[in-house]
Design a protein around this nucleic acid. Structure first.
Length: 680
RNA sequence: GCCCCUGUAGCUCAGUGGUAGAGCAACCGCCUUGUAAGCGGUAGGUCGUCAGUUCAAACCUGACCGGGGGCUCCA
């Protein structure tokens, strides 16, 4: 620590005299002789402390504090501290960009999940080569230990200083600016990057901070520029498109490496890659973007998923319905979809129109639409005859294939497709029945997801977006409250998603964490008072009066295809036996043992097991390799020894083996694992 | 829809102006083998499509189609 007598308005890190002797601060630390205390004096010193919380607010460590201020250290190991590190890294990136491309104008540069980005206005988009170059420049800046120095400026000063930065100017005093990192609070601040030795100003940026004390707090081997992308200024499509650079920054080289390893693992699990490798599905260009075909092996998985779901739904009192894929426009006018969602629908087909020889319309054409949702059709089923209160709750279920015109830029594998199948149900019940129905529904949904192997959940409650919704405030408030209570009764973590609801009602969604910790939105449960109104749905109450039911929309998988993809990635292609397309492969040691294994396979097949015997003209080792790569749960190997003993030898996916298992025992083991739906 | 990147055999990729290559897979042989690739051979591509530049285009230009990364959107 610098001696007080030298009166630093800044601090100098202690314990590193070789890196920065007190003498090196002379000339930049000021010599006004004031005796001040900084947050660093109170809580700094440990290099992992990057900023301080002063009276509850995050501040630079250089912030002057008084004895009465509450000052707490904020470590880079906390989410806030890490965000500061990344925010500072974004500044370093911007400095590097402006050094390499003097014409680049600054957008905004906040920390984000797993890293940071900075937006720039440049004449030429960045290239991958640019990223390598910029990364080198960043490392040089980091090694030069530039100080981040906060400076309060007046609006006039800021405008003068930032005359060359049109986007920063727009932030000053603008309403939108209050929400970004650059400005905030009651004063405008600029962060200057000062040369460690000379104190010379190397760069600066309008920013509310806080920042790490100096660039040496960011390990040069723990940053990486990841990719470039385009982004609209302030996220608005009406604004200029800027060039964004995404980077990542971590407290240590090891943390960066761990993150990169995670990304590699995620890439290995990518369902698009595994789908092709395991021959599960494909997207023939001839069919069109976002429209998948399922191959036999993918078809098996899908059928098993559906069969189990169907059985569970039957047990839970659902009734199965079927509806067409296409309908006249009037239905979606009635439901409100054409008012709120026409953009997401395939354009209409015009049918049944007639024109006479003179070109006059004799018969007006009808618009037909592919259905983006099943609910209007289910409403028609409800309304097909008079309904009694005795029928409620009425639960209609369908594997309903829907088509949505997803914009070309968002289609992604089978997780975001243009045609997909919802495991969609609509429950019609009375208001009184609703809380109980929701409890049962959440239990049902969570239990079923656990059966498929997901068991780490939290719930999200999405509330009304006033600009995109139908119905009265009271109805929304009531529905939201009922959902909230049901969610809370589950005792799971509950997150609020303000304004995230569908246009017709609030929703609870179940978020599941997969094997490598990623979260996926799974089931959604939506309460709807509006569609029953629009469709004038009624049932007859015990007193003979006609009452309006409420409606619960729920999809458990959301989309079968998407759920398929999630399971595929969750299991990295190694499905548990009950879901595996091929559950057992028989591998003969020589061709002489094919018949023996064929008998074993026949017995397995009789027990409902999906089994193949590899009769190809390959050596046994090659067959093992093939089965291993196909991620088949069980390999049954048989040669002379096994055949003589009436046994088979197991090889499991983890490479372990169990030899000389009597056939009956082997069959029982396999069947038991399948029936128990366990992973092996 | 917008920006950038990208498209060569079923798959993974090489080939940057002079009439297309490898490995794996497939097919045909040989080999008869005890826990992740035995050996040899054959076949397979109008280089995404359509225009343009050029004596000559997988390669340069444009449009379109598909894929990827983002933005936006996601009832």
């Amino acid at each position: 620590m610098l001696a007080r007598g030298q009166g630093s308005p800044w601090y100098c890190p202690s314990g590193q005299p070789s890196a920065r002797s007190p003498g090196s601060c002379r000339g930049i630390c000021g010599t006004d002789g004031r005796d001040v205390t900084t947050a660093f004096d109170r809580v700094g010193g440990d290099r992992s402390v990057v900023v301080a919380r002063v009276n509850g607010e995050l501040r630079d460590l250089a912030t002057e504090v008084s004895d009465t201020d509450v000052v707490e250290p904020v470590s880079v190991d906390t989410p806030e501290g890490l965000a500061v590190l990344r925010h500072s890294a974004a500044h370093v990136l911007a400095q590097a960009v402006q050094a390499a491309f003097p014409d680049a104008r600054l957008g905004i540069g906040p920390p984000v999940k797993d890293g940071f980005y900075y937006d720039f206005s440049v004449t030429e988009p960045f290239t991958p080569d640019d990223l390598a170059e910029l990364e080198k420049r960043m490392v040089a800046i980091l090694k030069s230990r530039q100080r981040f120095a906060r400076r309060v400026v007046t609006e006039e000063e800021a405008v003068r200083e930032l005359a060359a930065e049109p986007f920063k100017l727009r932030l000053i005093g603008s309403e939108g600016g209050a929400e970004v990192m650059e400005v905030g609070g009651s004063e405008l601040t600029i962060y200057d990057n000062l040369d460690a030795r000379t104190g010379e100003r190397c760069w600066g940026d309008l920013c509310r901070g806080p920042h790490v004390p100096d660039t040496s707090y960011i390990p040069p081997n723990a940053i990486k520029l990841m990719r470039t992308a385009a982004a609209y200024w302030l996220g608005d499509q009406a604004n200029e498109q800027l060039q964004r650079i995404y980077g990542t920054a971590w407290p240590s080289k090891d943390a960066l490496r761990e993150y990169l390893t995670f990304l590699e693992e995620a890439e290995k699990r990518d369902h698009r890659k595994l789908g092709a490798e395991l021959d599960l599905f494909s997207f023939p260009e001839e069919i069109g973007s976002g429209l998948a075909v399922f191959h036999p092996r993918g078809g098996v998985v899908r059928r098993v998923m559906e069969d189990y779901s169907r059985r569970r739904h039957e047990e839970a009192g659902y009734q199965f319905v079927n509806t067409p894929h296409i309908t006249k426009a009037a239905l979606f006018e009635k439901s409100g979809h054409l008012d709120w969602y026409a953009e997401g629908m395939y354009p209409p087909m015009q049918l049944d129109g007639e024109v006479d020889a003179d070109g006059n319309v004799r018969k007006q054409a009808q618009d037909y639409y592919l259905k983006p949702m099943n609910c209007p059709m289910h409403n028609l089923i409800f309304d097909s005859r008079g309904r009694s209160y005795r029928e409620l709750p009425l639960r209609l279920f369908e594997f309903g294939t829907v088509y949505r015109y997803e914009k070309s830029g968002v289609v992604q594998g089978i997780t975001r497709a243009r045609g997909f199948t919802q495991d969609d149900a609509h429950i019609y019940c009375t208001l009184e029945q609703m809380p109980g129905e929701l409890d049962a529904l959440l239990d049902f949904v969570l239990g079923l997801l656990r059966d498929y192997g997901l068991d780490d959940f939290y719930l999200e409650l999405s509330t009304r977006d006033p600009n995109k919704s139908v119905g009265s405030d009271e109805v929304w408030a009531q529905a939201t409250e009922i959902l909230r209570q049901a969610a809370e009764r589950q005792g799971l973590e509950l997150v609020l998603d303000e304004g995230g609801a569908a246009f017709y009602g609030p929703k609870i969604s179940v978020q599941a964490r997969d094997a490598i910790g990623r979260t996926w939105q799974m089931s959604t449960i939506q309460v709807d008072f509006n569609l029953p109104e629009r469709f004038s749905l009624e049932y007859q109450a015990p007193d003979g009066s006609r009452q309006r039911p409420v409606m619960i929309h729920r999809a458990l998988f959301g989309s079968i295809e998407r759920f398929f993809a999630i399971l595929l990635e969750h299991y990295a292609g190694a499905f548990p036996p009950w879901l595996a397309p091929v559950q057992v492969v028989g591998i003969p040691v020589t061709d002489a043992h094919i018949d023996y294994l064929a008998d074993v396979a026949a017995r397995l097949r009789a027990r409902g097991v999906r089994v193949e015997v590899d009769t190809a003209d390959d050596r046994m080792q090659k067959k093992i390799r093939n089965a291993q790569r196909a991620k088949v749960p069980y390999m049954l190997i048989a040669g002379e020894e096994d055949a003589a003993a009436g046994a088979v030898s197991f090889r499991y996916r983890d490479g372990t083996q169990k030899n000389g298992v009597p056939i009956d025992e082997a069959i029982d083991e396999i069947v038991a694992a399948i029936d128990a739906r366990v992973q092996v």
